[in-house]
Design a binder for these strands. Structure first.
Lengths: 277, 277
DNA sequence: CGGTATCGATACCCGTCGGGTATCGATACC
DNA sequence: GGTATCGATACCCGACGGGTATCGATACCG
């Protein structure tokens, strides 16, 4: 299945084999075996191009989930073994730079619990927490709806807040008490930047490409972009940026999320600490 | 992993090997390899007894989920291949005997859609739908909260209803207009029956053991048990049974549930038909 | 207290399957 | 039409999964 996912993502046997660290012929045969076992043509291949069939697309989705589940099983078991000897705690995934004070409060509240264990923070990029939770790199995560997808997890709401638009400090609109989405969307010369998708490629569009928040703030400060962020990011802003409340932006809900079958005491404790605080 | 789950469930290498259709020595070695690969003692074993360690319990939970995901991937791919040739539709799992008219309405509403495909009904026993959805035997399911666990699925609420208690027709309380849980719990000689758990064993307790609804109704009719059911089951009751509204029972919510990553048009259509009706 | 039965571990053997290299056959491109 | 690219095929090898026979430990019983 790992092999199939690699080929389906690359749509190229040679590159997929390289990525998997094996030669191309065994890969071809492995895919053939898989097709025979499932009784389905997964890939439409000519000697010049490879394309997914309908069943192939289904398998790609399902196989990704299955591989994540297998990896999660291995990782969580390894961590459980370490935890038994006191060498590991619980892994909390959070977006770097988001909900900082909420996170601090949560960690304090949990640390005060009687049977608290070590909390290993896993700071990740945009939308990566979901994956971390799925493949067992993390045990709990802070997500921001509607930006992150919480589908398939148990969640508990922590906070709902409105959003602000970030502008260069000297911008004509920086003094306004409120703005509407429509006004922001048509700001001349201040498009929303584009973030890389999970595979590292950027979506089509006209905004500048950014990779992290430092680049983002730099662009906004330079008057080349604007950005929309939750209100709670305001106190930690650089002073060359201005924040103007958005009147009609969808509210952002911060939730704590965990795999639905989680039975870990530490996760339960974190959730308790989070909802109590 | 299949091997480990078998041993963890049986807590006996010999029986597990038999269940897996292999000999005992290869099974021993397989478990050893797994333990070495994960760097964790999974089972505490003497020559007389086998017990799960802490990491072993974690792996048991995670491995079950992972195996379900793998099976789901295979099943859904096979069905997608059949669907491409028009030989298969979408599988809807429902509890036999529950929500019958709601189900009928749903099927009618969906069949009227322009691009409706065949709906294969999968009637299952108490609490089996969740499993069916997880391992790919079903694509959508009707669940009854709080009896069924919908954790990990996307759901849409269809109906909420109160519950009634089923009594033999001639019972002294059968004429009452309402009862409280406390009264039902202490009905002399009318305990709630026990249903088998997923492994086929019955929980400890004093109620009679039942395996299906026919047995259940028979017991109620004979004055050996009572039963609590959603109000909607009333119109289809045998006339030797009486139903009395329960005033303080938790309401039952019927939901339609599907795997969160499902991208199937047919599932979307069924959900649309269900929520519209 | 010794005999026995039970149960997991170990020793040894074998076939299959995953992986590698060399090469073919087809197709797009110059 | 020559060539380069790319997946499929042919052939070989080592490792791993599975089987049988047997050991070692422990609980049970007369």
């Amino acid at each position: 299945m790992r092999y199939f996912v690699a080929v389906a993502e690359e749509l190229h046997f040679g590159r997929a084999a390289q990525r998997l660290g094996i030669a191309q012929p065994p890969l071809s045969r492995a895919i053939h075996r898989l097709e025979r076992r499932l009784g389905a043509r997964l890939l439409e291949r000519t000697s010049r191009a490879v394309a997914l069939t309908e069943p192939g697309a289904v398998l790609l989705r399902e196989a990704r989930a299955a591989l994540d589940a297998v990896e999660a099983a291995e990782r969580r078991t390894r961590r459980a073994a370490l935890a038994a000897t006191g060498q590991a705690g619980v892994v909390l995934a959070a977006k770097a730079g988001a909900s900082t004070e909420l996170l601090a409060k949560l960690l304090d509240a949990y640390a005060a619990e009687p049977d608290a264990v070590t909390v290993d923070l896993l700071l990740c990029g945009i939308g990566e927490q979901e994956r971390m939770l799925r493949d067992g790199r993390a045990d709990v995560a802070l997500l921001h709806l509607p930006y992150d997808a919480a589908a398939g997890f148990d969640t508990e709401e922590l906070r709902t807040e409105s959003q602000v638009v970030l502008l260069p400090a000297g911008h004509p609109l920086a003094g306004r008490t409120g703005l509407r989405m429509a006004e922001v969307a048509e700001l001349p010369g201040l498009p929303l930047p584009r973030w890389p998708a999970r595979d590292g490629t950027y979506p089509e569009g006209r905004g500048p490409q950014v990779r992290d928040h430092t680049q983002l703030y730099e662009l906004v400060s330079l008057g080349r972009a604007c950005w929309i962020a939750p209100e709670s990011s305001r106190p930690r802003l650089r002073d060359d940026l201005a924040a103007v409340p958005l009147l009609d932006a969808p509210p952002v809900t911060t939730v704590i999320a965990w795999p639905p079958h989680s039975r870990s005491l530490a996760v339960a404790g974190l959730v308790r600490a989070a909802t109590r605080g």
